[in-house]
Write a protein that binds this DNA or RNA. Structure first.
Lengths: 346, 346
DNA sequence: ATGAAAGCGCTAACAG
DNA sequence: CTGTTAGCGCTTTCAT
């Protein structure tokens, strides 16, 4: 049987600038200039180079470029999770701004674990990014040290209740909790249940809860019952927790959830059960997620300004790299309560 | 006024191996060996180096390391979007596997746009990743060329209706659509409405729809009405579209949604309206998202095996890099229908 | 067990 | 407008 025509033994070595240089008969340096639109190059050579690069299928090696130029157009974005619904929206905001620049976001996930944050941060910094956007103000000493000595802009996001390493953009969760507490009292509720995530590692949820109880305390009210969860489908958990709590404490007249998703699950169950909302029992969540728009009734909530936080943070990094220093070290956004159909407006 | 004590003029230059070398009195080469746990180094020097590195706060420069070693432990993951709920779960699967290796995922988003996919792919390949995991089988010629010549493992995910460049892992969306079509006919429905995303750029939604209509055609049935959307809160859109469709075609006895989220929105509305489900009107979605667990009734759906797809894809890349070639070029997972409470079981 | 020399592929800086 | 010369910070390879 005749041997098939030998396919060119694909020399898998990636192409280099030199290959383009040889193919086009132009020096490596000029090729480099063309490919980066830098300096003046005659239209003729420019054409030659571009054609050679395209026909060869040349893909530049950013590793080498970054090492030589000492510049890396990457912004490290360090967030707890992608399945939180909150962070994809922050990313959207970041992208919207970075898209207009040379910068590219690179995401690292921490799963809300400080040790993992430290590890991820170390990994990311070893790529020498041009800036860091990191969720939260609470970090290990080692993490803080790395961020301080990295010599690049650092923006801590989501939260402004604390002191930033460099810059922070977010909302005051303590204040958000306080405002919701006040609004609930103003609506006349006194027997209030809290349903939320375990407050261990989620500092922002904890701060909201602290602000909340503080506001209630000023009105002489204490949280009457509480229920915590972790893991699982938030909607289903909200349903279960609500069921459990109403069975245990049937006299509650308000349910405050630490996030909209469990709140939505609870709301669906309460509607099914025929509770008179918000007259007999009021309800509220936190975040202002769009999902709420699709529910039979709108859950009261406070917008957490996720996309704007992303945009502002990215803008700060971008500005800093071009030398601008518009914003101060603290950018606090002010979210407003959406009363929806589950909390009486004063 | 006396001048404050001059703070050490922070020499912002990042530390290099050389700094650690000088601080520890050990050659750069040996420092490098210690930091990578490579080769034999005496426990004593090892200690010295480690201590010096830690106290200085040295963070290695992966840019330089990658250039020198010609190895980059990055896997490019290219997906359409993070707000689709499907892709974060794929990422979870990918992470779960890569976590056990030296490899790190880096995500690029395409927004379902081929031109953007091409751009993102080019960007990512210029970092010389060790492998690529990319959603879908449809790519521009240029993208396909880049992937082919990159000389690294390429895994196309989600879909198996087509020919892979290298390897593919997913489900047959055409078959999923067909099976749902058959199940609906088997349950006795004949007046069927379809509600979905515009079928333009989402090839997998299109394939499902094609399989679906094909199955119906075999039973002599055609889609009686259809409604498309794009953008906005999927839950709210599902509600609106369902409302519109039932107003226009009140005689429908089944609503088939191209994804679970709009299906959930529709289901909530149908329940509110008091429709007799599934006896008078049946409903089904697609994806098997966990969110459905929290609804008053469970929507019928087909699981899209997202996390497993991620796991298998990552495993293939990891295996390839260590020389293994366990799987063939096609890994097709077989999802099963979940009838839930909205589709009668045969 | 440790060190010296030679690049990895590209770009800054300077010549022409 | 184009080319030449040195590195960027690390790892490979080869001595010792």
């Amino acid at each position: 049987m005749a041997r098939e025509l030998q396919v060119t033994p694909k020399d898998t070595r990636p192409l280099t600038l030199r290959d383009v240089s040889e193919a086009s008969g132009v020096s490596e340096m000029t090729v480099s200039r063309v490919l980066r639109n830098r300096g003046d190059v005659s239209a003729a050579t420019r054409e030659k180079v571009l054609r050679a690069a395209k026909t060869l299928g040349y893909v530049p090696n950013k590793i080498a470029g970054a090492l030589a130029s000492q510049r890396v157009n990457l912004v490290a974005v360090i967030i707890p999770s992608m399945s939180n619904l909150v962070f994809p929206e922050v990313m959207t905001g970041i992208n919207r701004v970075l898209e207009q620049t040379e910068l590219q976001p690179v995401v690292g996930l921490t799963d809300y674990l400080p040790e993992k944050e430290e590890k991820v941060l170390f990994e990311m910094l070893s790529w020498r990014p041009s800036g860091v956007i990191i969720a939260g103000l609470e970090h290990s000493d080692a993490s803080r040290a790395m961020l301080r000595t990295a010599g690049i802009p650092v923006v801590e996001i989501m939260d402004t209740d604390g002191t930033p390493i460099d810059t922070m953009v977010g909302i005051s969760h303590r204040r958000a909790g306080r405002e919701m507490g006040r609004a609930i009292l103003a609506a006349g509720h006194r027997r209030i249940g809290f349903l939320g995530t375990g407050l261990g590692l989620d500092h922002r949820a904890r701060k909201r809860f602290e602000g909340f109880t503080e506001a209630l305390a000023k009105g002489g009210v204490e949280v009457a019952d509480q229920e915590f969860y972790s893991g699982g489908s938030a909607l289903a958990k909200g349903r279960e927790m609500t069921m459990a709590m109403m069975a245990r404490s049937p006299d509650l007249d308000f349910l405050y959830y630490s996030n909209d998703l469990i709140g939505a699950g609870g709301l669906l169950w309460m509607i099914e059960q025929g509770y008179d909302i918000p007259d007999k029992v009021g309800m509220a969540g936190f975040n202002g997620v769009r999902l709420l728009q699709g529910l039979p009734r709108k859950l009261a909530t406070i917008d957490s300004c996720r996309e704007e936080i992303g945009r502002r943070a990215a803008q700060i990094v971008a500005d800093r790299l071009t030398g601008d220093t518009k914003d101060g070290p603290k950018v606090e956004l002010t979210p407003t309560i959406a009363f929806g159909d589950t909390l009486k407006q004063p």
